[in-house]
Structures are given as C-alpha cells and as structure tokens.
Nucleic acid binder design. Structure first.
Lengths: 429, 429
DNA sequence: GTGTAGGCGGCGGGCCGACAA
DNA sequence: TTGTCGGCCCGCCGCCTACAC
C-alpha cells in the first residue's frame, strides 16, 4: 500500500489520479472474477495453475525465458548474477488470480509467492472455493479462422459437430432454422450472434459476427473457441496466432531492466523473506516456471540417466494434446556460468519424430513422463483425473472416458485405451 | 549481443525467431530515423534531450516516478534499498534515439548511459550530425479535437490562422478553393487530405480525415499538430488526452519488479562500470530525470535558501509555454529514508497562483529559474537560443524575436519584451 | 462439409449546406 | 470564426445463393 508519506510529496493531482486508478484496478480485480474454465480453454489443455496456499518451486530461469519470449529479445551479458538467488526457490502461493488483457484478451495469471525455508514453514491460507482450481472445460471447440471467417464479406462458418455439440438445438421446422445466440467473453461482455442453418446444410453465424471480429481485431489464423462451462453457459474465447502475439510494448522498461527486475525482485524476496508478485503468460512462456512441489518431488524421486526413454505432451494445432516420445541423450547445466547445478532444462533430449513443430532440445525432469515416475506413483496419477496436472498424470488412461471421447480429437493420433506401459511399448522401439 | 552459447540451449525455432525479431527491430531502428522536429513538437515545448556523448546526471528517483506514472501504481514498501546507487549518477550518454509507439504514436527516447567517475572520465563519441539536437519546430499548430472533428459525420475544422500559416496557399479562384494535402506522420506514413475552403469562410479537411481518425483511434480531447520542419515539409503528429494515456500494459512484469528493475539495472551499471539503457517518456514522466551536467552545475552553483523567489515554465493547454512564479518555503529530503541528501525535489515551494492545473509542491533546483542563476550565467542563456534547454535558458528574452512572434500565443499571457529582471519585477510582489 | 465468390439491398459514412454562438 | 446538425447520396457491409473441392 502507498504510505501517506510517500504521497505527500508527489504532485497533488497526480497522487489523486494514482489513487483513483489504483482503487479502480483493485475494484475491478475484486469484482471481475474470470471464468476459470474459459480461462483454461484459452490457455490451452496443458496449462495448470497451482492452488492458492500450496507449495511450489519458482524457477528464475524459466521466468527469464518468459520475459525473453515476450520482449523477443535475448538478454545480453550485462545481467548481473544474484548469488543469493537459488535456481529454484521454494514458495507458498499466497495468492493467484486469473486475468485477461483488456485489449488482446491474452490470458495470464498473477501470483504472489512467499519464499519459505521448508515444507513445514507455511502459513495457513484458506482456499477460495473452486476459483483457483484448474478446471479444463469438457465441452468446447476451437476453430482456426479462415479468410472468409474474418473478411467483412460474410459471417462465420461453424463446424457441424461444434454447433451440434455446443449450441442450443435449432428448431428445424423453421425455414430456415435459425436462432439468436448470446455468448459471453472473458471480460463478461455479451455478444449476440444470429445462428442460421442453411443450404447446403451448414451452420453459420451471421449478424453480430463482424462486430465481434472488428472489436477483437481478429485476423485469419487467429482462433476462436466456444465452451460450455459447468453451469452449461455458452462462453467464447479468443486465441491469437502465434506470429502476431503481443507487440513488444517497451517504451517503459528496457529489456535488460526487465530481466534484472525479475531476478532482483525474486532475490530480494528470498533474502528479505517478503513476498513477490509475478505474471505467468501460459501462451507466451516456453515452459511453466512455477511448479507444484508435489509434482517436482514425484519427478525428481528417481535420478534421470542418459539413454532413458520418456514421453512429453504437446498441444496440437486443434488445441488437443499429443504425446511425443524421445530419449535422454545428456544431462548437463543449461547455463553453467550463471546457474550451476540447476535442474532447469538440464536434460538434453532427442525426439523420435522430426519436423512439423519443433520441440525443445532441453527439458526439465518435471516436464516429462517416464516409466519410472509413473510406476512409483500409480495411485496419484489415477486420482488426478482431468483436474490439473495434465501431462504429469497419465492422460492416456482417460482417453476412453466419455469426457474425452465426446469431442473430436486430432487426426492421426491413435486412440489408445491401454495403460501407460502398453502405450510406451507401442510407441517406443 | 546474445552469445552463441546462450542461444544453443534455447528451443531451436524460438531462437531463430528471436534472432529474426531482433534483427528486424535493429534494422527498423537503424533505417527509421524519426523527424526530430516532429518528435519535439509531440513531446512538447519544454522537452529537451541531452546530446549524444555529453555528460548528464541520472536521477533514479525521477526514473521511478516515471514508472509510477506509467503503471499508475505507487511502489509499495517491498522495494529494496540499493546502498551502492547514489541519488544522482554521473553518466555519459553513449547513445540516444527518438522513438514513437507503433500503436499509440506516444513519443519516447531511448538512452544508453555509461556511468563515469568524473567529468574527465569520458569516451570520445562522435556526434551524429543534427539528429540528436533538440530542435523545436518554429512553425506549428496544435488543436484539441472537438466532438465534430472526431465524429464519423464530418471532417476536420482547421483554425484559420493555422491553415494560412502552414498549408500551401489555396487557389482562391477555384469554386470552391480546394487542394490535396499530403502529410507524413512520425512513422513516415503518408496521409492525404482534401483541404477545402467553404462558406461560411472556413478551412476544412474532408476526404481522408476519417481514415486518419480511425487509424489513430483519436477521440475528442486528443490533439493533432501540424508542423513545417526545416525542410519546409508538412508533418503531422498526435497527442493523446492525458486521461486515457497508455493503458497500463502489465501482464509482463509486476509493478514492483519494474521499480526494482529500474533501480537494480542502474545499481548494477554503477558498480560494474557497464552501461545501462533507459526509456524517457516526456509526456508521462512528471519531470525529466536525465539532466545535462552543464545545467545541473549552473543550477547548483548557488545554494538555494528558504524565502527565495523563483519562476518555472509549464506547458499550456495550447502547447505553448507559460511561466509561473513562487517561493521556496522549505528545503528537505523528499524521501529521507531511501534517498537521504538527494537533490531530487528537495525544494518545497508555494506558488503565487492557485487553481487551474496543479503544480508540484516539490521541485528540483535545476527545474527552476532564479535571479541568481540567471545573473551568474547570462552569456550561456543568451546562447541557448531556441535550441534545447527551454525553461532553463531565459525564454522571455526571445519573445520579441520573429521566430516566436510569428505564431499565435496562448491567450492571457502578457507579451513581455523585457529581460529577466524586469520580468521578475513585473510578476512578483 | 466447408471455403470462397457473385449478387444486391440497406444503412451509415461522409460531403454539403444552414445556423448559432 | 468555428462547433454542431439536418439532408442526402453512394459506397461498402453483410446477408443471401451458388459453386468448387
């Protein structure tokens, strides 16, 4: 909070304005609770958030990677070392909130992290109901917008299965069958679309659609997604094509200062015992850098070894999940000078498949599945269900469930109803 | 520069993308040289930039103020102290470039500052011609947009004197007199407007105007400004109303991290002897925080005292300058805990006039004019002309010059053709 | 089943006056 | 001198059908 002393010296009108803005921001933050399922739908099927009150490891290197990806600048060598900042910092999640950029609808999460010395050094924090639960929608579809979808010339062509699965049933006795859809976005804005079923048999959104495209500044290649949440509300989200993404909004801080700011803030919190605040941008960040302690412990229970086989989840073009397999070919520091003995991306890997969507040459142990970590914790993986921890549970086990089979899956992915061992046997040489 | 080692570990496609973006940004920065006069017109009549190669004092407190004003958040108490970072850091300007935000046209300057130990510890840096000279346009006008100007219904009503002064002469034998204007903006985009002179006698911009309003997303209350530069080119700039300004583009760094990043970057540069990069947003920052050494020395030559009379320049609504007078009522640390003995805003002042546009209750000595500092350096103020250092020279002396009198001045400001002593006598009790 | 293009009707963008402040 | 509004026209937004793949 701003102390009255700090304010007294500032320009009077400026201070008043600041107060007003701050209040406004806080008020909005308080009343504007983002729909969790829609947020996760926009974030992607692999993204999970830690729970409020839970313990996590914070990885400064991963946070730096997110800054680099956001600014599209690799930090130069002028970044100082922070000898007191470990490569992984045990923290309790004091607060976590979901947000979406007012302009771009880009989803992000704000977390306040409190460094702690041990797993027992925690502060009891009441959970906030289901708000921070990472709940992925079970009914949704995501469509990559075509030139026709985004042109001013016409409306939006709704994939048949999507309309049948998500939209209210049409009265097919009408000529032509049509209805008005009212859908809400991440900011709780209402959008109304005319949904019509026309010859040749197809579902279209006409009136209202171009307003939406214009307001969100959608271009061909961007995606829209519709979901039906647990209350059966129809909701609507947006995902930008990776090419455009956020225009690097510098003009405030130099990229060097951003990198320094991220590290210095964590270092200061670690040494002073105070909390610090970070933003996590799931679609910008190359990898998550706030990892639940349980997941970390599970993954690091066994030492990795060169030659070890593993699998890892990736998001497909159609916003579903796809497992790729590979082999660990080396274990070494990613940045030996700055972060010696860090577990961040210390596994050098080779992938069984090449081409179509590059995959990282270095991964962290908690980012992959191995026969070992699955073997040792079968019960916890069975309990993970679709709640959180995707890619760390054993999603292959659930493929046959009604939840998963109810939605079209990516082409070319074998439907596997066996367990993890069979799965690994099938795909691995 | 990014070391090859740093890159080798990153995702391959990500690294390639980053390189590409970096190259692109550098190329654009290199070829896209912003018109200095237009930049200064947009920045305002009081804004001056230090010269490349010159010596300056960098004030971390002022930089923090800019961050606070940008994010509209006052930093909380979690910001660490940087005992090795002095309240003013002597630096050489290694590089300075003018920029404008692609989206908002907001002007800002990027500076690379090299901390130096003394005035003799400098590195010879070739000046870049006139590029970094702070040259304010002599012929310009700035109009606050009305509801009619920005509505889709009509065009733009050009103030008579502006059209006559800046636009090419119309052929008044035509019925009605009209011409096509081609004007360039900060990004070198070309805009064409139909300029027509109609009954009742008035100048209007019609065709093309609404495109411009739409593209720049101008609203009533924003300002447009036309200038004619030294090559007599007609140029066009934009200024947003202070209310909207930049939407705080967080979602990357927490405001705390920004404040920490600013201070830590400067502290690191100071202790390691490396350079650091900052952005200066003249229309957001409450006060400039990179002060030319010469100006600082001139201002601090005499000790300020309680009861001292002074004058200070402010920008008027019409983008001209206006001098306000006041009295020093106290000298004390602005932030005694964090920045003891800092000269930043260490003067508490009272203003002779109240109301209409709040003025700061604390100022820095280099921000004001006193009879003393004028007395001691009369020759340098006479040489300053209209090049740079406005508000620190004695602009009152130039008011009678052809340059100044050639343009309409703000209403209600007495035209003063006397020197600074008479001026002070006139306005002060 | 879905992307794209031609046809064309209607509505609002935008140019002109008029009028008032 | 200049801000705003009524009138009105034509350009293009956007809804339809048609057709290709």
């Amino acid at each position: 909070m701003a102390s009255s002393k700090a304010k007294s010296g500032v320009l009077r009108n400026a201070a008043a304005l600041l107060d007003e803005m701050q209040l406004l921001a806080e008020t909005q933050g308080a009343k504007m609770v983002i729909n969790s399922e829609l947020w996760h739908a926009c974030a992607g099927p692999l993204v999970c958030l830690p729970q409020r009150g839970s313990l996590v490891y914070y990885f400064p290197q991963g946070h730096s990677e997110q800054v680099a990806a956001t600014t599209k600048k690799i930090p130069n060598s002028r970044i100082p070392n922070y000898p007191n900042l470990p490569s992984q910092l045990l923290c309790q999640v004091h607060n976590i909130t979901m947000h979406a950029d007012k302009d771009t609808d880009e989803v992000y999460a704000q977390m306040t992290l409190q460094p702690v010395n041990s797993e027992t050094d925690v502060f009891p924090i009441p959970a906030l109901g289901t708000y921070t639960k990472s709940k992925h929608p079970t009914e949704y579809f995501c469509k990559n917008l075509t030139a026709s979808d985004t042109s001013t010339h016409g409306g939006f062509s709704v994939p048949r299965r999507a309309a049948e699965k998500l939209f209210p049933q049409l009265d097919y006795s009408m000529q032509p069958p049509n209805q008005e859809l009212i859908v809400r976005d991440l900011h709780d804005n209402m959008w109304t679309f005319r949904h019509i079923y026309r010859q040749p048999k197809r579902h279209l959104l006409t009136t209202g659609w171009s307003l939406f495209v214009g307001a969100k500044r959608l271009k061909a290649g961007d995606s829209v997604l519709f979901i039906r949440d647990e209350k059966s509300q129809l909701l609507l989200g947006v995902r930008r094509a990776t090419r455009q993404q956020t225009t690097l909004s510098s003009s405030v801080l130099s990229t060097d200062s951003m990198h320094i700011g991220v590290l210095a803030a964590a270092a200061h919190a670690a040494s002073s015992g105070s909390s610090f605040t970070i933003y996590y941008n799931p679609r910008t960040s190359p990898s998550p850098f706030v990892i639940p302690l349980a997941r970390y412990n599970k993954a690091t229970y066994l030492q990795p070894s060169v030659g070890m086989r593993f699998a890892m989840m990736f998001e497909t073009e159609e916003s579903s999940k796809r497992r790729y397999t590979g082999t660990v070919v080396g274990i070494s520091d990613y940045d030996p000078m700055r972060w010696p003995n860090s577990k961040w991306r210390n596994l050098q890997v080779e992938w069984d498949e090449h081409g179509y969507g590059e995959r990282p040459k270095r991964v962290s142990i908690w980012g992959i599945e191995t026969p070992e970590n699955t073997l040792l914790f079968p019960s916890s993986t069975l309990n993970s269900k679709r709640q959180c921890l995707p890619g760390y549970g054993v999603p292959g086990l659930e493929i046959g469930s009604p939840t998963m089979s109810s939605f079209p899956r990516a082409q070319g992915i074998p439907i596997v109803t066996c367990n993890i061992f069979q799965l690994l046997d099938q795909n691995w040489p």
